[in-house]
Amino acid sequence: MKPNIKIPDFSHTAVVDQVGIEERASRFTKRSIKNETKMNGLLLALNMIDLTTLEGKDTVGKVKQLCTKAMHLHKAYPGLPTVAAVCVYPSMVGVAKKALGDSGVKVASVSTAFPSGQAPTQVKIDDTKYAVENGADEIDMVISRGKFLQGEYNFVFDEIALIKEICGDARLKVILETGELGTYDRVRKASDIAMYAGADFIKTSTGKISPAATMPVTLVMLEAIRDFYYKTGKKIAMKPAGGISKAKLALHYLVMLNEVLGEDWMNNEWFRFGASSLANDLLMQIMKQKTGIYQSSNYFSID
């Protein structure tokens, strides 16, 4: 965080009108994306994916296979971009790092007692340190929603700032778990806290709670990013995660991103999709655009 950024009073953050934000979000879905715009959007969305496996049953084998998929999305279409990153638990960071080699695909690791965040601070520090030391390029931390809902905003802020320090060069994604926050006003407040505390990304969800990412909730966060940029000149990245599994929906998100934050954000440095099944739907649509026909799902690998 730059020292010249003035920390605001988080008990008075901007308010969000529920009806208005949902209406605006649905307006983006009215855009009709065709032809070359569609193809560009599909490739871009593919390149923005954090290909994710976060399960108790994750194994070395599973993670290795996922990394192969990340680097070689669809051999039938030479020259396709890779996904942005592979997202795993800290215990699998080393495996993913080795498997991905110098492909340019980054390794993201969840941390801070993901997904609940209900652990002592020292555990969260150790969790994050472990991931960074094993080579994680990005850390996806969760905020303490319990503390947030108790009104202990300073605790939440300090925790984020602390983890940011431990991240070093790794970029920090802060998961708000919007499905547990309940209102758009609180999503907005949590976004502001995370950005001022040093988040590089703000991220909607763990994927373990329903609802996960929705367009209105993402819009609230994009507008928070825009206001933060207006105030400080500093760009923050955005990651909706969970629930985005169809290409058409991903294109709606890109339309929204484009119209709220503009072209500067339209790449995987500043926007990600946290998803696992989205990639194959995008690939299916890309092949449809290229060949004019839909291919069976059997033609697309499922690592």
């Binding site: 715009t37 490739l43 871009l44 971009p81 492909s103 072209e263 339209m266 790449n267």
Partner: peptide, 13 residues
């Protein structure tokens, strides 16, 4: 190799 970020224009709004 190090940077696989696609700077692809989705097209201006």
């Amino acid at each position: 190799k190090k940077d696989n970020t696609l700077k692809l224009k989705f097209d201006s709004a």
